[in-house]
Design a protein around this nucleic acid. Sequence first.
RNA 1: GCGCCCGUAGCUCAGCUGGAUAGAGCGUCGGCCUCCGGAGCCGAAGGCCACAGGUUCGAAUCCUGUCGGGCGUACCA
Length: 578
Amino acid sequence: MIEDVIRTGLHQALEKYGIYEDDIAIVVGKPRERSHGDLSTNLALALAKRLDRKPREFAGELAAGISFPKDVIESVEIAGPGFINFRVARPYQVGRLLEIASGEALADIRTGGGKRINVEFVSANPTGPLNVVSARAGAFGVTLVNLLDAVGYDAHSEYYVNDSGRQIQLLGQSLRAHYMQLRGDVVEFPADGYLGRYLEIMAAELLDHDSEAIQRAASAFDDESFQRVVAPEGNADDWLELPEDKSVRCFAKYALMKILSWQRETCRRFGLRFDTWYFESELHETKRIERALDKLRKANAIYEEQSAVWFRATDYGDEKDRVVVRADGRPTYFVADVAYHYHKFQRGFERAIDFWGPDHHGYIARMQGAMTALGIAADWLEVQILQHVTFLEHGRPINMSKRKGLFVTMDELMDEVGADVAKYIFLTRKPNSHLDFDLDLAKEQSNENPVYYVKYAHARICSVLRTAAAAGVTVPQPDAAGLSRLSEPSEWSLVRELVRMPQVIVSAARSREPHRLTAFIHEVAGLFHQFYHQCKILGEDADVTASRLQLCLVTRQVIATILQLISIEAPESMGDKE
RNA sequence: GCGCCCGUAGCUCAGCUGGAUAGAGCGUCGGCCUCCGGAGCCGAAGGCCACAGGUUCGAAUCCUGUCGGGCGUACCA
């Protein structure tokens, strides 16, 4: 990397002053102001005091003491209070641009060595349709999976389904009550039951469905893990004949089947795919929970008190101990989660990344504590907290409650503003920023959304290429001769930005900050639009046209690469704006 | 009370490991299509970076405190 070349040169120059490589970390960065060159270091400022020198003078002396190959660094200047600014030579930039065009640049950043990483996200309770709260997690999760793959890991996306416990019983009771009400039976609705319209509709459908229709719906689940939620035999009236607890279980299973099919479809529509849907019920059936408890017991990490079983979380940095088995003998959600993550570890993942909401941050310490107690390295489980999104409608926050059936679904979000617009909005924010999402404003402005600015740049390039083809102009593959002929400032501004792509991807992956991708691609699109307005591409001198077409090709490739990482379509044309 | 996150333009948000004149989108105002797509380009207005101290040659960025907002502090999930 060019930064390393500069650092090495500076280190050599510093030896004269008795300062060696281990002594100081040289910071080389990109100055905000274009006129300050391509790269800059504050080295002289940082060392001035230590060497008792005037910064600017020292900078000049340092700069004079190093020489770089002319085809890498074009010039070195001293500026301001003592910055040393470097201008990168054009042949070097062209070389990096060609590495992007050939795919070599993307190959070079694949340094993960194929290590397996599990990324778990969304994992919404299967008690209703996915609501908008999951959209942010979805956008981040899928992008991180793509990013990790891009830097050479083997990333695996996973969705955890809480298909057991009280909430599922409640779901079954709620559907059963809705159904009985529709039949005209007098029935008491369960306290805290689910009141959403979707359950009423589901109940109405059940009235029309004979057992065959129900089995047909069930057969939509082809993959194995979903088999555990396919609807039971018979129809709803048959289920009512059963003893109440069995009856509730039949209704619960049917509801789970329907809801999971919605959730899976919503994910697909939003561009999310999961390699694994992991069901909590499997943990109970395979005795993984007992086994996790045994393992904790052997590690002396649990004890009994007041007839409950506790995990010694305080021994692992949590503020209090946590119950793992209730006094009535039922395991807690927490211990199921421990067993689940232990199984993740056993499945051979070298790291697990979970996306959680801010309401779970207090949960991190006990979870990581449990992992440590099980003998797993402290940093194996990485928890990314995605801060809360406040959805506003008519200027007021929407209070969402799944239980009361009050929420905006992800499908509604996609209907109203579109999947790509929604994703782009989430992905321009960093994960720990609280976000106000005004639905009315988003609808109103969905046509003005910045995502179209980027898509348009891509479509525009495609259009130019089509026009060129129609005019019989051959579009040349990028090469050194062609790209070196670029001469206009707007062309080089674009080149300098394009060349950053590999590092942007690496930094976004490493910091788990996908918004660096959208910031970058927006910049690229802007510079392309400027270039387009300042430089005519077709109908110029043949060489000039060829060079500019090459630049277009690389730009299109960069935009397409980034859009693919954020799961947004790169269109060849824009269609009509409403 | 304690813990986590956040306070940057009218609104929604960027600002990479402290740097040289704090940016973008939307909104407002003014220009640009006989020319490769005007979902574009050019320009203007708009900021005590919540507040107060501190560290530093240098702070939106690091530290402390204050104020304001969100969330958590379950034998719920």
